[in-house]
Design a protein around this nucleic acid. Structure first.
Lengths: 327, 327
DNA sequence: TTGAAAGCGCTAACAG
DNA sequence: CTGTTAGCGCTTTCAA
């Protein structure tokens, strides 16, 4: 900047004014500065600027389970789009569903002075985040609502989705319905299995718990679980898979099976229409977008009580769930 | 930091030493500083540190077409994993295949002093990037090799993939083979259509060009293109779709069609096995990883000539391409 | 093993 | 409309 100032014959402050498009700069000066900057290949140093300006950088940290999981990558896209116009850049990282790693990432982002944090947390101890929130970093929890901290959240209507799916399968005459769940320590699992149990019990199915499985962390594990279920003396006649990877695993396990159980999957996915899979659909882009908007509101000084957004789900009925219950 | 120094009764420099784990600090001093830092909730200010240290930040910029496209999100994952241990954070953004937007993102990242840039460029004028490279920012081009700049590249063996697919289909007796291509201004399209034409001509198919289509930028457009091809008086008996979104669109278009053409898709995808789709498979994670490693090598001072990595492809034959050619 | 002083590039505050 | 001064939090250099 100093070199630019010298070449244009002005002060550093004037260069600063020109680069930031401030008013009260004569057009002649502005032109000379721009010419000098171009000639010298000058790039304003954002690090210096943010350092001088104070606490935060124009970045938002996004922490999810795995950037390559379509659920999370669509969240990232939604957030990116919402942050585009306001000029924020997105620092994104995967916690691999590991609490330790997540804390490392949170620390790293906070030390980097992100303006805010979007997080699909894999940790159930949020004392670190509580502290950062208290120190002023706005935090929005995505997908999983924490129980140990009052904060903004954006989650899916898990209960509603599962209820819709169970009702649909019950109407089809199914009673032996299995739930292939994700990690049992997550709030999403609790909400879903609770709704599942309530709905089944209300329908008079007492022994629903024997078809509930948890902790299929990836497609392979889910495939094994589905195999195990189908091998039962009284196998389930219907399956509810609780996320896109589990649905993928189930579809692999069911490939070639003659007596296929009915299937409803949580999360819509790219070729569900072609495969004819009934899904509990929702909008992950909206989760990222709303989370980002919430963050922006907080950055604009909104200090009202935490808001809890619940995204609607939609049961998209296709062939896979229209398999009639045997007998 | 000053407050920590005061509370611990030491100088700012000593706090700095402790926070960075430098040697020559007595254990007593170290403990007092740590205690003071913890009590005050002190977070080292990475912005100030990077500002003082000089030119760059511990971040790498990743620019792709769309974070939510599985091809790109797997690149992101590969890059993230490679950058994990060295301690870099990933700033990621989508250019939406728009050159203008891409330049804006490049400028933003450079001004933020990223240590390096990974880019799947949608621009064919790289004068901006050439300039940044000259000024010292290492840049690695992913997926698309630029023609107007000498730089490190990591691309897929596009020609080899297409050749393998065409050979396979020719062996199945197909002569009327269509290529449903992506954006015609991209190098990937040129490499693929060139290989396609060469292979077809070598097999004595003279009029191969009448089944070549380009610029299906999304699944919907691809579906329309496939419909158009199937409506031809002499429709193709086989299709090669040139990326995952195009394959998705083709599968939608083919859904319910009785006389289905053989199909080979570029890019493997999640349920290709269940759907029985033959694909030209490759490893997008490796692209991100190798690109990141290349960047790290440059940051470690490697100034040797640009390297051009070409990732192997693998033709995974499934049912979709085993449709015999009619007649 | 520790401290003092200086300065990275930028902008706020004030002066002209 | 433009310039001067000072200082953000940190680390480098030098001295103790």
């Amino acid at each position: 900047m100093h070199e630019v100032a010298e070449r244009a014959g002005v002060s550093a402050k004037t260069v600063s004014r020109v680069m930031n498009g401030e008013r009260y700069v004569s057009s002649g000066t502005s032109e000379r500065v721009h010419a000098a900057a171009a000639a010298l290949g000058f790039r304003p140093n954002v690090i210096a600027r943010e350092f001088r300006m104070g606490a935060t950088s124009m970045t938002i940290g996004l922490i999810t389970g795995d950037v390559a999981n379509p659920f999370y990558s669509r969240i990232a896209r939604g957030a990116e789009h919402a942050l585009r116009l306001p000029g924020f850049s997105l620092l994104s990282a995967s916690n691999d569903e590991d609490a330790e790693r997540e804390r490392m990432l949170v620390t790293r982002f906070v030390e980097r002075r992100v303006s805010g944090l979007l997080i699909a947390s894999a940790d159930d101890d949020h004392s670190l985040l509580r502290n950062e929130a208290r120190l002023g970093t706005p935090i929005v929890f995505l997908d999983r609502a924490p129980t140990d901290i009052e904060a903004d959240t954006v989650v899916i209507d898990n209960g509603g989705g599962i209820r819709r799916a169970v009702e649909h399968l019950l109407e089809g005459g199914h009673r032996r319905i299995a739930l292939v769940g994700d990690l049992s320590r997550l709030s999403t699992y609790h909400e879903r299995s609770a709704a599942f149990g309530a709905e089944m019990a209300a329908a008079g199915v007492g022994d629903w718990e024997r078809y509930v499985r948890a902790d299929s962390h990836d497609a392979e594990a889910a495939a094994r679980t589905v195999h195990e279920l189908l091998g039962l003396p009284q196998p389930p006649t219907a399956l509810i898979t609780s996320n896109n990877r589990i649905t993928t695993g189930a579809l692999r396990a069911l490939n070639g099976v003659v007596q296929r159980p009915a299937l409803v999957g949580f999360d819509d996915f790219d070729l569900a229409d072609v495969l004819g899979i009934t899904v509990i659909a929702h909008d992950p882009d909206a989760m990222g977008r709303i989370g980002a908007e919430e963050l922006l509101a907080r950055l604009h000084g909104d200090t009202s009580a935490p808001r809890h957004h619940v995204l609607d789900v939609d049961l998209v009925v296709r062939a896979s769930s229209l398999v009639p219950a045997p007998r």
